[in-house]
Simulated assay, not measured.
Amino acid sequence: MSGEKARIGLDRPAWFKSSYSAGDGGECVEVAARPGKVHVRDSKDTTRPALAVDPTAWTAFVEFAAL
Score class of each variant (00 low, 15 high):
Ala66Trp: 04
Arg48His: 01
Pro13Met: 10
Ala6Tyr: 02
Gly23Cys: 10
Asp24Ser: 00
Ala66Ile: 03
Arg48Cys: 00
Val38Ala: 01
Ala14Phe: 10
Cys28Leu: 07
Leu67Trp: 04
Pro55Cys: 08
Ala33Ile: 12
Lys37Pro: 00
Ser18His: 04
Pro35Gln: 14
Val29Glu: 06
Trp15Cys: 04
Phe61His: 08
Ala22Pro: 09
Leu51Met: 12
Met1Glu: 06
Pro13Gly: 14
Ser43Val: 02
Ser18Phe: 06
Phe16Val: 15
Asp11Glu: 14
His39Leu: 15
Leu67Ala: 15
Tyr20Asp: 11
Ala50Thr: 00
Pro13Arg: 10
Phe16Ser: 11
Asp11Leu: 14
Gly36Thr: 06
Val62Tyr: 03
Gly3Cys: 01
Val38Pro: 07
Val62Lys: 09
Leu51Ser: 08
Lys37Leu: 07
Ala32Met: 06
Ala50Tyr: 08
Thr46Asp: 02
Pro55Asp: 12
Val29Gly: 04
Thr47Pro: 03
Ser21Ile: 05
Val53Lys: 01
Arg41Phe: 06
Arg7Pro: 01
Lys44Gly: 08
Gly26His: 06
Ser43Cys: 02
Val31Lys: 05
Ala22Cys: 07
Thr46Asn: 00
Val31Leu: 01
Ser19Asp: 05
Val38His: 03
Pro55Ser: 11
Phe64Trp: 14
Asp11Lys: 13
Gly36Phe: 08
Gly25His: 02
Val29Arg: 04
Lys5Asn: 11
Glu27Trp: 01
Val40Ser: 05
Asp54Ala: 09
Cys28Gly: 02
Asp42Cys: 00
Ser21Phe: 06
Gly25Thr: 03
Lys5Gly: 09
Ala32Lys: 07
Pro49Ser: 08
Pro55Thr: 10
Ile8Glu: 07
Ala66Gly: 14
His39Ile: 00
Ala60Gln: 12
Glu63Ser: 08
Glu4Lys: 01
Phe64Asp: 10
Ser18Pro: 09
Val29Thr: 07
Pro35Met: 13
Ala52Asn: 04
Lys44Cys: 00
Ser19His: 10
Pro35Lys: 09
Glu4Gln: 07
Lys44Pro: 00
Pro49Trp: 05
Val62His: 09
Pro13Phe: 08
Leu67Pro: 14
Ala52Lys: 04
Glu4Leu: 10
Asp45Glu: 12
Phe61Pro: 02
Lys37Gln: 12
Arg48Leu: 15
Arg7Gln: 14
Val40Gly: 02
Ala33Gln: 13
Ala50Lys: 00
Trp15Thr: 07
Ser19Arg: 13
Arg48Phe: 05
Leu51Pro: 04
Ala6His: 02
Ala22Phe: 02
Ala14Trp: 02
Arg34Thr: 15
Phe64Val: 13
Gly36Glu: 13
Ser19Pro: 08
Thr46Trp: 01
Arg48Ile: 08
